[in-house]
Amino acid sequence: MSAESILPLELAEVGFSAGGNRILDGITARFEKGPVSVILGANGAGKSVLLRLCHGLLAPTQGRIAWDGGFGGDPRRRQAMVFQRPVMLRRSALANVAYGLAIAGVGRGERLASGRQMLERVGLLALAERPARLLSGGEQQRLALARAWVMKPEVLFLDEPTANLDPSATRAVEAIVAAIAGEGTKVIMTTHDLGQARRLADEILFLHRGRLIERAPKAIFFTQPHTPEAGAFLRGDLPWD
């Protein structure tokens, strides 16, 4: 990683509409290096779309998104994303991890070595040669994290990374996310598991009907939410929390 950073990420009055529906509106925010940012909100609040806009998979229909650090190259190269349902390429676990490195032009020997190291860190080294599509859901999500982590991203986006996983798989994923954040990668994630937000977040961004209506450090958000909407959300019409 060069000394220059892509962060901070600036969103100015960002809106997104599709098919006549306004999904996001007037989002202004700045993401700095450091804290794990967790985006909360009800289903349909626009969390996933916001991540995709930040990651560049979608273009905003209003406003502006900019990486304001001093990094001169393509900011895409310094970020990664793990999806709710990651697409496993039809090849071995190891080849999945090495794929992004191959795209980035890393030599074969080096990318296989890095891939193995990474698989070891996520506890999948024993399954390195196993076809990725034959792995369990939890293993696939860990593999997806390894595939993102191996790129040494400065920013990692996670979209509901444990939505379909059982508790033990969830714990394993959270441990990896914490390790990635601990090594200095900026993590921006969505979840609707409030327990997960409590365990992983440093700060919370609360989306309500496409608007960012509250942003606070974790301790404050969970104890004294400012907005009635956040309060209602936390009091939980949420049967699983």
């Binding site: 990651h55 998979l57 895409r76 994303m81 697409v87 992004g100 795209i103």
Partner: peptide, 12 residues
């Protein structure tokens, strides 16, 4: 349709 976001994200 299935791979688009994943591959774009990986920089392909």
């Amino acid at each position: 349709g299935e791979y688009r976001e994943q591959l774009t994200s990986l920089g392909a």
